[in-house]
C-alpha cells in the first residue's frame, strides 16, 4: 500500500480543500489580510509613543509577528471547521465518507489544507505589513516551525470542532468563546512580562501564548520563554489534538451512525 501522503485519495481531498477556500479568496484570504492591517494601523497609531515592549523595538514592529500568527491560527481553524460543518449541514460529507479514504487520509488532508490557508493568509499579512513596519528575521527556522505547528494545531482543532458541532451556532460559540479569547490573551498585543504575576501564570497555561511567543522569537531573537519549551508545548498540544481527532474519525463519531 502507498504511504498516505502519496495516495490519490488523500491528494485529491487535500487539493479539493485548497480549491474550496481559493475559490472564495476575497472572503478567505484578502479580508483577513485587510483586517490584520487595520489592527496594525489603529494599535500602532494609538500606542506607538506609549509602549515599548522590547528595548529598541518600536511597538508597531513588535505587533507584526503577533498579528501574522493570529491571522494564521484563526484562518487555519476557519478552514477545516467551516468545511466540515458546511459539508455536514448540506449532506455532501457523504462524498468523503463513501470513498475508500482512511481516517488518517481524511485527517491529514483537512489539517494540511488548513495549514495551507493559514500560511497563505499569514504570509499575506506579513508581506503587507513589511511596508509599514520593517521587521528583522533573526531565526527564520523558528518562524517556519511555529507557523507550521500553530497552523496544524488550529487545523486539527477546527476539524475536531467541525465534527463535534451539529449546527453553525455551536461552531460560532466555539470560535467566539474558545479560539478568540485564547488568541487575544496570548500576548499578540503585549508581552506577558507586563502582566501581574498571577496573570503571567495563567498565560502560561494557554498554548496559544507559546505559539506566538516562539514565533516572535524567530523574528527578534527575544521571547518571554525558551523557544524550545514553546516548541515542546506546541508539539505536545498537536499530538493530543491529533489523537482525539483521529479517534473521532476512526470511530465515525457524529459522522457515521
Amino acid at each position: 500500500m502507498k504511504p498516505v501522503l502519496f495516495s490519490a485519495g488523500f491528494r485529491t481531498l487535500f487539493a479539493k480543500e485548497l480549491m474550496r477556500f481559493w475559490k472564495v479568496s476575497f472572503q478567505t484570504v484578502f479580508a483577513p489580510i485587510v483586517n490584520a492591517l487595520l489592527y496594525l494601523v489603529v494599535f500602532a497609531h494609538v500606542l506607538e509613543e506609549r509602549v515599548q515592549v522590547y528595548e529598541g523595538v518600536p511597538y508597531r514592529v513588535f505587533l507584526v509577528p503577533g498579528l501574522v500568527m493570529m491571522a494564521t491560527l484563526q484562518n487555519a481553524f476557519a478552514n477545516s471547521s467551516s468545511s466540515l460543518i458546511q459539508s455536514k449541514m448540506t449532506g455532501n460529507i457523504i462524498f468523503v465518507l463513501l470513498p475508500p479514504l482512511s481516517h488518517v487520509e481524511i485527517f491529514l488532508a483537512y489539517v494540511l489544507a488548513a495549514v495551507g490557508r493559514g500560511l497563505v493568509v499569514g504570509g499575506g499579512v506579513l508581506a503587507v505589513t513589511l511596508f509599514l513596519a520593517p521587521i528583522p528575521f533573526v531565526h527564520p527556522a523558528w518562524i517556519i516551525a511555529f507557523a507550521l505547528g500553530g497552523a496544524a494545531i488550529l487545523g486539527a482543532l477546527g476539524l475536531l470542532a467541525g465534527i463535534w458541532a451539529d449546527k453553525v451556532d455551536q461552531l460560532a460559540a466555539f470560535q467566539n468563546f474558545v479560539i478568540l479569547p485564547f488568541t487575544f490573551l496570548s500576548g499578540v498585543f503585549y508581552s506577558i512580562h507586563s502582566l501581574a504575576p498571577v496573570w503571567q501564570t495563567i498565560s502560561r497555561a494557554n498554548p496559544f501564548f507559546f505559539m506566538i511567543d516562539g514565533f516572535r522569537h524567530g523574528f527578534f531573537g527575544v521571547s518571554d520563554v525558551d523557544p524550545w519549551l514553546s516548541l515542546g508545548v506546541v508539539a505536545g498540544t498537536f499530538v493530543v489534538l491529533a489523537a482525539v481527532t483521529l479517534t473521532m474519525l476512526r470511530t465515525g463519531y457524529k459522522l457515521r451512525t
Binding site: 485519495g9 470513498p99 475508500p100
Partner: peptide, 10 residues
C-alpha cells in the same frame, strides 16, 4: 474529477 480522485482514479 474530485470524486474520481477519491477512488484513486486521476
Amino acid at each position: 474529477v474530485i470524486q474520481s480522485g477519491y477512488f484513486g482514479l486521476r
